[in-house]
């Protein structure tokens, strides 16, 4: 039974990080209807920036975490400003294809650095002995990761519910024309949505990098799993992203814990999310919390 709870705990840890990274994706989709295919790459980039600042520049990990989050905030904002601002008004399909191009560009840039080929791991800065509670153990890194993630998700939801900028973001996602007419600058909101997405992606990347170590393929796979998460939760729902993130984390851990090694299967955690994605798209395309757009001709 403790094996089960162990899987539950690690599932929730991974799932909460999925939730954090899916948040940014949902934000961009909600405000501008753009599927940001490059989101996984931004997550990886955030993790690498944190590592570079911590180890190569020798800054304390707490400060470099904050710095990396801020850097990615401005990086994502400038990506929007340089590549996507001039495509406002173009068909959405070309904007999405631009993000595919961005994905390729970031891949290339990462391959230029040592991160593309080598493995790194963050220096340990927390106690190494895991906390054990009734046969279930959780490492300090995981615990701190979950705490940071929870704080971030909570503050994001406060931001959208209460702050002026958050309300204007929701207004833009609801109706662009109407929000323009009450004086909201839609391009600015798009920029801000990208920046916030970059921020949450960098935070998620740094946390997962601390837990699993830095390997571009792993981070890449982690980043792409964001798509099944957002489809499961519903593309335009922030609560959906959080719930689906945790569900997906649990599913992956259970698959790795119970399916691998039986019936000649292994590596199922890597493929199950995508199978779920296809099934969800077939039977419940708006996900768990997505808005049904009823449209009849």
């Amino acid at each position: 039974m403790s094996y089960f709870f162990q899987l539950v705990v690690s599932g929730i840890v991974v799932g909460s990080i999925y939730a954090l990274s899916a948040l940014g994706f949902v934000l961009i989709y909600k405000s501008s209807r753009v599927l940001n295919i490059a989101h996984g790459q931004i997550i990886a980039a955030g993790a690498f920036i944190t590592y570079a600042l911590t180890v190569w520049a020798g800054i304390s990990i707490y400060i470099s975490f904050l710095l990396s989050v801020v850097i990615t905030f401005f990086l994502a904002m400038s990506v929007e400003r340089i590549f996507l601002r001039r495509l406002i008004g173009e068909p959405i399909i070309s904007v999405i294809m631009v993000t595919i191009g961005l994905m390729s560009i970031i891949d290339g840039l990462v391959y230029l650095t040592p991160f593309g080929t080598e493995n790194f791991s963050f220096p340990a800065f927390l106690p190494k002995t895991p906390i054990t509670f009734g046969g279930v153990s959780i490492s300090w890194t995981q615990l701190v990761g979950v705490i940071i993630t929870t704080i971030l998700i909570a503050s994001f939801s406060w931001f959208f519910k209460r702050s002026t900028i958050g309300v204007s973001m929701r207004a833009v996602s609801d109706d662009q024309l109407a929000s323009m007419s009450v004086g909201i600058s839609v391009p600015k909101v798009f920029g801000l949505a990208w920046a916030t997405a970059g921020l949450s992606a960098a935070a998620a990347g740094s946390i997962i990098g601390n837990i699993t170590g830095l390997n571009f393929d792993t981070l890449h796979a982690f980043g792409i799993t964001v798509f099944p998460v957002v489809i499961l939760g519903g593309l335009d729902s922030i609560i959906g992203a959080v719930v689906a993130g945790i569900i997906m984390g649990l599913i992956q851990q259970f698959a790795a814990g119970y399916l691998d090694g039986h019936w000649g299967l292994y590596g199922t955690a890597d493929v199950l999310p995508y199978i779920i994605l296809l099934v969800i798209l077939l039977f419940k395309p708006h996900g768990l919390f997505g808005i049904h757009e009823i449209e009849r001709v």
Binding site: M97, G101, S104, I105, G108, L109, Y111
Partner: peptide, 18 residues
């Protein structure tokens, strides 16, 4: 080559679309 190819193709996609 592994680094430059995605970089070049990505830029080609983005620049052509823009």
């Amino acid at each position: 080559a592994t680094a430059l190819k995605p970089l070049a193709f990505g830029f080609v996609i983005v620049l052509f679309l823009m």
